[in-house]
Simulated scan of single mutants.
Amino acid sequence: MTTTDYSVPTGESPHVCAYCGDPFREEEYLVLHHGLEHGDELSEDEVAAFYDAYEVETEELKHFRLKALGILVLLYFGFLFIYAIIGIS
């Protein structure tokens, strides 16, 4: 097992895992950590909260991927048109 040093910014109170003591900046991160690292120890409410947070995280990731793909397509065709215009003249 490895130990990790954590740094919490001054003035912020972290959300601390009750099972292992790891701090998290956002409560959502703590809920996801619970489901991924301590799934066997969770109550039904904690499991339901994990699945809700996981679904939200998955949806946000899908939107990010779609936006990134759109930007890459625009860049590709933008450079293609610029090359076609400069290459012709």
Rank of each mutant, 00 (worst) to 15 (best):
Glu59Thr: 11
Asp5Glu: 15
Phe64Asp: 08
Thr4Tyr: 14
Asp45Met: 11
Gly35Arg: 09
Leu30Val: 03
Tyr83Leu: 03
Leu66Glu: 15
Leu42Val: 00
Thr10Gly: 14
Asp45Asn: 10
Ala68Leu: 05
Val8Gly: 13
Leu74Cys: 06
Gly21Met: 06
Tyr54Cys: 07
Lys67Tyr: 10
His34Tyr: 12
Glu27Tyr: 06
Leu36Ser: 05
Leu72Val: 04
Phe77Lys: 00
Ser7Pro: 02
Glu27Ile: 01
Ala49Leu: 02
Ser13Val: 14
Tyr54Val: 05
Leu32Cys: 03
Val56Trp: 06
Ala68Val: 00
Lys67Val: 12
Tyr76Cys: 03
Glu57Asn: 15
Tyr54Ser: 09
Ala84Gly: 00
Gly35Gln: 10
His38Ala: 02
Glu59Phe: 08
Thr4Met: 13
Gly70Ser: 07
Tyr19Glu: 01
Val73Pro: 03
Val73Gly: 03
Gly11Gln: 15
Phe81Pro: 01
Tyr19Ile: 03
Ala68Arg: 12
Gly21Asp: 00
Glu59His: 10
Val16Ser: 05
Asp45Glu: 12
Glu57Asp: 14
Gly87Ile: 07
Glu57Met: 12
Ala48Trp: 07
Gly78Met: 08
Glu28Met: 04
Ile86Gly: 00
Glu41Tyr: 02
Thr2Asn: 14
Val73Glu: 06
Gly78Val: 08
Asp45Trp: 01
Tyr19Asp: 00
Phe24Glu: 01
His63Ile: 11
Val8Ala: 10
Asp40Gly: 00
His63Leu: 13
Thr4Trp: 10
Thr58Asn: 14
Glu28Val: 02
Glu59Gln: 11
His38Val: 07
Glu26Trp: 13
Lys67Cys: 12
His15Arg: 07
His63Pro: 03
